[in-house]
């Protein structure tokens, strides 16, 4: 079980309090009228499925109920950082270097 830090509650809690929302920073096509089929495929279905350092969404369902983002190594399952929804994606390569990956 993972230990997850909620950046809103500012507290570390067990994974069972949270729901994983999958890959982070996937933006819905801003102008749906102009979006092509391929744009929708990319938005709805295609995923990076990264082996290594990746950003993902979590929601503190049994706490504050808010979405936030986290960066985790999908090989060791260790978290590298947590940040609030709306914050820009951190530099994953720099984080990886820091973690010695």
């Amino acid at each position: 079980m993972l230990l997850i830090y909620c950046p809103y509650c500012e507290i570390e809690r067990a994974e069972t309090e949270f729901h994983c929302g999958g890959e982070a920073h996937i933006a819905r096509p801003s102008d749906p009228e102009k979006a092509t089929d391929d744009d929708w495929v990319e938005f709805l279905y295609m995923r990076s499925n990264t082996k290594g350092i990746a950003a993902e969404r979590w929601r503190h369902i049994h706490g504050c109920g808010r979405f936030f983002n986290a960066v985790r190594d999908t090989v060791s399952d260790k978290f590298l950082t947590f940040y609030k929804a709306g914050d820009p994606r951190p530099d994953l390569e720099a984080l990886a270097r820091e973690a010695g990956k």
Partner: peptide, 10 residues
């Protein structure tokens, strides 16, 4: 519930 390549689960 999360993407992982760790071959171990919770």
């Amino acid at each position: 519930q999360f993407v992982s390549y760790s071959q171990a689960g919770g």
